[in-house]
Amino acid sequence: MTLTETLRFMWDILPELLQGLEVTIQLTAMSLAGGFVLAVPVALVRTYTRGPLNWPATAFVELFRGTPLLVQLYVVYYGLPELGFVLDRLLSAWIALFLNSAAYQSEYIRGAIQSVSRGQLLAARALGMRSLTAFRWVVLPQALRLALPSWSNEVAYMVKYVSVVYMIAVGELFTRGQLIITRTWKVGPTLFTVALIYILVVYAVTKVMDHVERRFRIPGLETGVEGREA
């Protein structure tokens, strides 16, 4: 193929890939949102309680962080039907992704809650707030802002990790790329286009999250995160 033909081909497959990107973005957003809703109570329980309430939360986080997403996906998609829960591909993908994300997000939030000094909670209690009220209005707003840098990593991470649902053939970006490859057998240009889209999307996500971080930073309190979060 000449260069023009290659570029022409890349242009032609773009609409199909962008449809896949839409699914990727939907799954990312819904998994992050679902994960967040579950992560806050899990982090709360893990930080402030001991005993029977704490154990299931800890077990949930450790199990989901200690096993591959792929295994979790297969347990939901292929395993749950044996117990009578037959779910379609998209729903299975979402359930596995959001549970996985909840485990990681709860760790960021827990770390952030712990870094808000305990004195603040005591002071709020001394002012007559109930524990939950104090947590909701004093600790949580600060903790969420402290958790933002790790949380932005999680966003970029999720965009990339959604590709794993290719294994159960949900039509997201990577799956579409693979379908094009099996149809046209033009491996190089297709993978290159897919890679380019990922690079652009992750770059955009990083820029947007940088902006959000600056906007919500607590003046005088900076946190840095190195490497990949686990």
Partner: peptide, 25 residues
């Protein structure tokens, strides 16, 4: 996956492999 396909018991096979990964990590 091979074991699951042979035994037709997907849940057990993937819970088992999950357990192995968990121990390894």
């Amino acid at each position: 996956e091979h074991v699951a396909a042979a035994t037709h018991d997907w849940l057990t096979a993937f819970l088992a492999v999950g357990l192995i990964y968990f121990c390894l990590t």
